[in-house]
Design a protein around this nucleic acid. Structure first.
Lengths: 248, 248
DNA sequence: CGTTCCAATATGTATATACATAATCGCCAT
DNA sequence: ATGGCGATTATGTATATACATATTGGAACG
């Protein structure tokens, strides 16, 4: 009943029971352990397995059904739907390489560097549950003389203490981090945005010009490491992701 | 308790109670009757209003919160949270699934369908070296009453001859193709763009508003199959890609 | 042999209840 | 005033229970 029962051994999230059931099953499906067509244990079996009520199991399965991962059939049970979803391999891109591929000289320039105790905003971006020291960085990536991308980054100093000593004056934090912290998981959010005045100024474009925004959160062994937001002027950038289906 | 109690006066769907509560509130929000920031009636008020238990109200509100339409704050209540970005997984995404994950009714509507011999532009988009018949489609994906994405598609009829017989009036070409043509490779290009007048018109947004553009080329055994361009209003869409370095 | 119908079963929805948790209000002491 | 603290309140999660609904398998019957 109590949430503390969930055995979050390492510094992972605190999951409610139905979320734990949900992610257990989702993992089994996405890992391929339960192939498409496989019948998921009946609700009453899961009830026994997780030692909880049917309502709790039902809630988890309902969510999975709504997410399209499983299909529920009365009197028959719940079945894995859909062939294995293949992850889109979007590289953790290094802007230096992008710029140099264009044949232009690359340069990084720090705009701001602030060490502070994480506020609510910082914690939301990093996915932290408790307050702690963070490093907030802002910098510009140049291609030749022109700004190529604006970078706004937060580093969780609890996870990467050594970053506190680094100035990041003309080395970009991305490559620095990759060389030091092995990442275990990342999440990209990609969207379009109109440039506000500050951004337009930094990137030397018109206000309200469309921009591509790529945000990335990175974890290392369940611990949030960094959140970074790259803002590209629309005309300067296209993301390319090429991939093949992981399985038939 | 019985589902028949719900007074669906018109020939509408038979809705379960919590779905009815959900859609009532969603309508109020999407219609603008409840503006962003507006406090939704407390659970116990809705309990009284719909003459049901708090669990039922709670389930409806939880779904709305998960869909991102409202924000729930303990001790304060639930509030309308408008500027909502959608979650989408960057796979070979099916827009229907994205829309339905939001709890909104999905609909596809064809705008245009032209069969022609490929011009130079068509060949460039598809990656064709020789001329041949292509099908050019344009259609709108709706989430509820609002346009969700504009789709501009080219299908290489030399690779998928049967597409020539299909009208694609209210079935989207994406799912249709996936069910018929095994794809062996795909390439995504993602960028930001300002909406020109035509696009703004179709999507019912302001001209020059930022849009997210996702273009995909698909091959089947080295043969170009289709090129598709999805155009999303910036505020309605965020692509999310989650992955791990080794495997997931 | 085939059709009908019923019982068993798994899911779907709703209720009442309980306790946990977080945020806020207002009281009280300093 | 003001800072701390407990009571209040709204949401979050879980339980046990009840009955509805759809589907299946098999028994009963023509």
């Amino acid at each position: 009943m109590s949430l503390v029962e969930t055995d979050d051994v390492e510094g992972g999230e605190i999951l409610s029971l139905h979320q734990r059931i949900l992610s257990d099953i989702r993992d089994k499906i996405l890992s391929g352990a339960w192939a498409p067509g496989h019948r998921i244990p009946f609700e009453h079996e899961l009830t026994a397995q997780y030692n909880c009520s049917r309502m709790t199991v039902n809630k988890a399965l309902s969510q999975l059904a709504k997410a399209g991962l499983i299909e529920r059939r009365r009197r028959s049970g719940s079945f894995v739907r859909q062939p294995q979803s293949q992850a889109a391999v979007l590289e953790l891109h290094d802007i230096r390489i992008e710029v140099e591929a264009l044949g232009l000289p690359y340069r990084y320039e720090r705009l701001e560097r602030v060490k502070r105790r994480s506020g609510a905003d910082d914690r939301a971006l990093l996915g932290l549950s408790a307050a702690g020291p963070v490093l907030a960085l802002e910098g510009l990536h140049f291609a030749g003389e022109r700004p190529f991308a604006l970078e706004q980054r937060l580093i969780n100093l609890s996870a990467v203490a050594e970053a506190a000593e680094e100035e990041f004056l003309d080395i970009a934090p991305g490559p620095w981090l990759i060389g030091r912290v092995p990442w275990s998981e990342a999440e990209h959010r990609i969207r379009a945005m109109a440039a506000d005045e500050t951004i337009a100024d930094a990137l030397d474009i018109d206000a309200n010009a469309p921009c591509l925004v790529v945000e990335r959160r990175t974890w290392s062994a369940e611990h949030p490491v960094t959140h970074v937001r790259f803002i590209y002027p629309a005309e300067s950038h296209t993301l390319v992701a090429r991939f093949t289906p992981s399985q038939g």
